[in-house]
Design a protein around this nucleic acid. Sequence first.
DNA 1: CCAACTCGATACTGTCACTATCCAGTACTG
DNA 2: CAGTACTGGATAGTGACAGTATCGAGTTGG
Lengths: 220, 220
Amino acid sequence: MKISELSRTTGVPVASIKYFRRQGLLPAGRATAATLAEYGEEHVQRLRLIKALTTLGGLSIAATRDVLAAVDRSDSADSTLKAISYALPVPVAQAPAGDEEREAEAEAAAAADVAELIAAMDWRVPSTSPHVHGLTTALRELRRLDADYRLDRLAVYAELAKAVARLDLERAAAFDDSPALAEQAVVVLALSGPLLELLRRLAQEDQVRRRSPEEDPDAG
Amino acid sequence: MKISELSRTTGVPVASIKYFRRQGLLPAGRATAATLAEYGEEHVQRLRLIKALTTLGGLSIAATRDVLAAVDRSDSADSTLKAISYALPVPVAQAPAGDEEREAEAEAAAAADVAELIAAMDWRVPSTSPHVHGLTTALRELRRLDADYRLDRLAVYAELAKAVARLDLERAAAFDDSPALAEQAVVVLALSGPLLELLRRLAQEDQVRRRSPEEDPDAG
DNA sequence: CCAACTCGATACTGTCACTATCCAGTACTG
DNA sequence: CAGTACTGGATAGTGACAGTATCGAGTTGG
């Protein structure tokens, strides 16, 4: 398959395919001459995965590269899952502090609550995990907005998150020992979030509409 | 409060405050002279909200403006909730088609399944909802990757999403009739997603670690 | 009075994800 | 075997986005 065919079957412009190669997301084709290379089904599949991770998963090119690197490096199933889990970017950058002192205090309080939540959920994650840090930051910001995120309230959400994670891992593990494990695991671990978000938004829309006085039940 | 003070207490650079004003995210201060204006506590609060929506919620400046406009326009609680729900951007842009014919087919199949899911969940949303469209697109992409998203599997996630949405609305409704309703509703509706995602990632990390052979239980 | 600050407008910067152009080197076509 | 279309690789350019910097004219506290 020549690059133009690869482009046609995937719908990805030739220039973009070249770009993905330069960025290390896509392996080079098998060169048949100085200015000619042959692409195969694996390139088609990889392009689909790249598209799904970037558009659906919202990953940047750099994050996608890291995730795909974990896929390609995959040796054991467990280490692959772990690598992917850490290659996925954590939302929530740091928010700059205004007031030095009060900030440190709020941060410490949030950190303590996160630790307590993790203990209550019996989650075995290192305190250095980026996810722990992200949650701490998020909690601090939410509380600054006077949102009532007490521990017991958070815990309810945490239970639901746990249920989702369990479902995900069941699905990812179902591919154990299969050669397609890594790719399927990436799909499950990286795209389950956006999918859940879409479902949540739909459920949210339903809830909001149910509260509204019945008006135009089918107009946007 | 002068702009420099506003900047100091919120940690947002003066240039950025001016930028947010130009973009219509922040109301102007009360002008006391041709080149002087007075800012108040509401500006501090609004800046915090902007920061939370953009960094935590991941909203663009334009999306933030739309959401905040819905907040400011708020008349009844229900209409406010509805406006916010629709002002929030739906992830998942459209993916370009490769193969004309097969695409249309896959799209139709996904759309039918989404409709069936919505019926099964008794969700009352118009078929024109951007969330419905987003979910359809997502489902089509996932299936193209050979991910096994049959209806019954989706339904399990949908039930969890419903539970989350119910929790959210309960919290948003708790502010009914309060003057702070709109702001609190925005926080709940827009930031519950990122928070849940963080919790999910944490739960996912725990699940992955539990599957791993016990090694360095506290190293990143 | 004057240094320090303000407003508002405009211009600039850096990042990101592509997209376009160029070049020398094939590969079918008649 | 000339001509055209296509190729891989390198480099440069584009447009959107989110700020950041500079400027001129006006104001104010010491």
